[in-house]
């Protein structure tokens, strides 16, 4: 009996280590493929080079880094306010029956395949942007709007947790002092939940940086430094997905190196978000 328990515990422990093992494998394989060219080209000229012509030996991914940053910031400008507002609505305003319908509906947004978003982007949003604002339509703005909608569920659900974690006494206190409900939300609940709200934004950011298939269809993929939101741009993810199929040799290595940059970026965001979550958790 004791032996059986021991074996089971060890097996479960191994299962538990699988996530770590896989994470390590991913890191190892992507790094093995991607780092040699970064070292060969020099990290500086790889990260800060503005020219990407992989078949002619130029591997600078600055335009993609900037593209990813533009698109992500744009997406957060949309998903941040809307997401927090929706979370406040769900936690503070909505009657229970309404919240019970709205909550799963919003999570459904997360379930819709990204290719569907991209497709709707290209047939509805891109022509709209072209007609309304000019430019080619395929642009940072289009990508930011699509991504904004796509990361909403992430932002909302984490923001919601943060708001729900605010001790009810705080709220009662403010109300007892004669604050309106809105003043309570604005001056007590939101500031108290600040850390959690920032975590929501950071994780939303991770989602936005990593999204591929929807972005590739609406962002235009031009390899140049974007100057305004109506310019087409290329993100790190779209760079990989666009050219992976064709790439060989140094070109393929450069795409994996793009993956390395993306991976490191996401891991930093994750670590930030997790540190915040942990800290918050230990306070309670």
């Amino acid at each position: 009996m004791r032996l059986r328990e021991f074996v089971i515990e060890k097996l479960l422990f191994i299962a538990a280590l699988s996530s770590l093992a896989v994470l390590a494998l991913i890191a190892v394989f992507v790094f093995i493929e991607g780092t040699p060219i970064m070292l060969r080209e020099g990290l500086g000229s790889f990260l800060l080079g503005a020219k990407w012509a992989p078949t002619k030996g130029s591997f600078g991914i600055l335009p993609m880094i900037m593209g990813s940053i533009w698109v992500t910031v744009g997406a957060l400008l949309i998903a941040g306010p809307v997401g927090v507002a929706c979370a406040v609505f769900l936690v503070e305003i909505a009657p229970r029956q309404v919240a019970d319908v709205v909550r799963p509906a919003i999570q459904l947004l997360a379930g819709i395949p990204s290719v569907v978003y991209g497709f709707i982007g290209i047939v509805v949003l891109v022509p709209f942007i072209r007609e309304t604002f000019g430019g080619p339509g395929l642009s940072i703005l289009s990508a930011a709007i699509i991504l904004g909608v796509m990361v909403l569920p992430t932002v909302i659900s984490i923001a919601q947790n943060a708001l729900e974690a605010v001790p009810v006494e705080y709220k009662q206190g403010a109300l007892a002092l004669g604050c309106t409900h809105w003043q309570t939300i604005l001056l007590v609940i939101l500031p108290t939940a600040r850390t959690g709200l920032i975590t929501a934004l950071v994780l939303g950011m991770g989602r936005a940086v990593g999204e591929t298939m929807a972005v590739i269809m609406v962002v235009g993929n031009a390899v140049k430094l974007p100057i305004n939101p109506l310019d087409p741009a290329r993100t790190l993810t779209s760079n990989i997905a666009l050219e992976m199929a064709y790439a060989a040799g140094a070109h393929r290595e450069a795409l994996f190196a793009t993956g390395v940059v993306l991976f490191v970026f996401i891991m930093i965001l994750n670590a930030l978000a997790n540190m915040r979550l942990r800290r918050r958790g230990s306070h309670r």
């Binding site: 538990a16 994470l23 991913i26 394989f29």
Partner: peptide, 27 residues
């Protein structure tokens, strides 16, 4: 060990699908 595992799971949850694609392809 438990903390490390939780951290690993959290990180894995944040890895973008294109990276999973690259990894799956190469591995």
């Amino acid at each position: 060990a438990a903390a490390a595992i939780r951290f690993g799971v959290d990180c894995l949850a944040g890895v973008p699908s294109i990276i999973f694609g690259l990894f799956g392809f190469i591995f």
